[in-house]
Structures are given as structure tokens and as C-alpha cells.
């Protein structure tokens, strides 16, 4: 591998890593609050991308379509909470987990019925898919935009969590829901906010994913969702900064497995998950994870 190829692979790593990081933030936020691994997260991502596709095929300009996509996903997220998760607040966590898997299947199949299973071309506008040339290295615009968006969102989420009243309520919920209710906080309302926020993050992730890889299908959220989940676990699930870190580590691992061993490139997922197992053996709570019983971000 010559130097410019190495630099290119570095760029590729940042590109893929920031993608995973962006999606993992949403995963980890919902987990941090509700101790729910929201397996439908990847599917909300898909829903976001499809809403944008739908809105722009109805003639809406791209920025408005993005807005419609995020709004639609937030509504879907809040609705899933109200319909599927709320009745199970007092139930064992495992019931909630199974329900999340059910929601995931439901969304996948619903969109399969509505849009068919054939991949569709995502209408990414040309001004977002351009790339710059730095010597031999090609730098797609998205490689610059996505990390910036990730950092902005990371900052935004941290700000909401630590500087606002809602954030305080969310953090309190992460510790103990019944006590928070006794304090007069409308827990259901706050949980709705968490789901709304989580879904908005998923939608943003899904839209950026679709801009970078402009082929969308109802099952597109499964693998990315799994990878983002792995990233969140790797970083220490529940920790927002950990999720970003995990995302980058996962992205770089995948890119460099392919770069170093192109003959094994088809098994890069195996390498990524092997790495995950290895880290978990050394640090069972992930890189940034601390005591599992404490609520934290």
C-alpha cells in the first residue's frame, strides 16, 4: 500500500466510522434512559430515508424533504412508544426487548408491502455528492460533513442532557423511574421526548447514510443497525461519547481489514465482531462504560 492509498483508506475510515458513530448516538441515548436496546432503531433509520424519498418524489425540494423525513420519523418513533412500549413500562425488560424486535419486523414488512423490496435510488442532490481532489486522495464532501454533523449532534445531545430541565429529567429517569414520578415529573412525556429525539437522530443517520450510499430498501436498517449497536456496545452502551468512539473504531477496523487483506474483505464483519468480543472480554462494559447499575451518559 503506497502512501496516497493509505491516506485514502484513512479518509474512507473516517467516512464509514462517522456514519456508524452518528447512528450509534441514537441507540445509546434511548438505552441510557430506558435500559431498552431499541432494535427498531435501524428501522427508524430506514423509515427516515424512505420518507425523504417519498417527499422528494412528490416534488418537494431536498431540504424540505429532509425536514419531512425527520418529522415523519419522530412521529413514528413516538407512536411506537405510545402503542408498543408504554403498556410495558412495568413489565420485565425482556418483554420490552422482544417488543422492540417485533416493531423492527413490523416496520420492515410494512415498508416491504408499501414500497416493494427492490432497492430504490435515493434522490441525493448533486451538490451533496461532490468530492474534492487533494493530490491523489479523493475527499468526498460527505466525509467532511458527516463528522461535523456528528460532533454537532453530540454537542447538542450533551447540551440537552446537561443544560436543560428536560435533560435533567431524562438523566433522572435513567436512574429510577418510580422515584422521578414521585417527584412530580411526567415520566411518560419525558420518555416520549427521548423517543422523539432518538428517532430524529436515527432519521438524520439514515438520511446521511442514504446520501453516501444512495440505494435504499426496507431491509437496509438491519445490518447498519447491528453495526451501530455493536459500536454502541464497544464504546460502552449508554455513553454518548463512547458511541462515537465505538463507531470510529468499528469503521476503521472494517476499512483496514479490507485494505490490508483484500482476500479476506468479504469477512470484514467477522473481524469487526471478533474485535467487539475481544474488547468485551477485557472490558465487559465497553471502552467508556462504567458501572452498569448507574445511570450515566
Amino acid at each position: 500500500m503506497d502512501f496516497s492509498t493509505f491516506l485514502q483508506q484513512l479518509v474512507n475510515g473516517i467516512s464509514l466510522g462517522s456514519m456508524y458513530a452518528l447512528i450509534a448516538i441514537g441507540y445509546t441515548m434511548v438505552y441510557g434512559t430506558l435500559r431498552l436496546i431499541n432494535f427498531a432503531h435501524g428501522d427508524i433509520m430506514m423509515v427516515g430515508a424512505f420518507f425523504v424519498y417519498l417527499a422528494s418524489s412528490m416534488g418537494l425540494p431536498f431540504p424540505l424533504a429532509v425536514l419531512a423525513g425527520i418529522t415523519g420519523s419522530v412521529l413514528v418513533g413516538i407512536m411506537t412508544d405510545k402503542i408498543a412500549y408504554k403498556p410495558l413500562r412495568e413489565a420485565p425488560k425482556i418483554s420490552l426487548l422482544i417488543t422492540a424486535i417485533g416493531i423492527s419486523f413490523f416496520l420492515e414488512n410494512l415498508f416491504n408491502v408499501l414500497f416493494g423490496g427492490v432497492p430504490k435510488a435515493f434522490p441525493a442532490p448533486e451538490y451533496l455528492t461532490t468530492s474534492f481532489k487533494l493530490g491523489e486522495v479523493i475527499l468526498p464532501l460527505m466525509v467532511i460533513v458527516i463528522p461535523i454533523v456528528t460532533v454537532l449532534i453530540l454537542g447538542g445531545v450533551l447540551w440537552v442532557l446537561y443544560k436543560t430541565k428536560y435533560g435533567m429529567a431524562i438523566r433522572a429517569l435513567a436512574f429510577d423511574i418510580p422515584t422521578v414520578k414521585l417527584m412530580g415529573v411526567n415520566a411518560d412525556y419525558i420518555i416520549s421526548i427521548v423517543f422523539g429525539l432518538g428517532s430524529a437522530l436515527a432519521a438524520v443517520g439514515g438520511i446521511f447514510y442514504a446520501i453516501s450510499y444512495p440505494s435504499i430498501d426496507p431491509l437496509m436498517g438491519i445490518i447498519v443497525g447491528l453495526k451501530a449497536f455493536a459500536a454502541a456496545v464497544l464504546g460502552g452502551i449508554g455513553s454518548v461519547t463512547g458511541a462515537v468512539l465505538g463507531g470510529f473504531i468499528l469503521g476503521f477496523t472494517e476499512i483496514f481489514v479490507v485494505a490490508m487483506f483484500p482476500d479476506l474483505g468479504g469477512y470484514k464483519d467477522a473481524f469487526a465482531f471478533f474485535f467487539l468480543i475481544f474488547v468485551l472480554l477485557l472490558r465487559p462494559t465497553g471502552i467508556m462504560g462504567e458501572d452498569l447499575d448507574r445511570g450515566r451518559f
Partner: peptide, 18 residues
Amino acid sequence: KTVLLSSGDKDFNAQVST
């Protein structure tokens, strides 16, 4: 050279750079 990928993946930048 032979380059491998795995269906379902969407990012082939590493393969393409190789």
C-alpha cells in the same frame, strides 16, 4: 488482484482504493 466484498454491504471505498 482479487478483492472480496459481502452482499448487503454498501461501503466499498476500501476495495475501490485497493
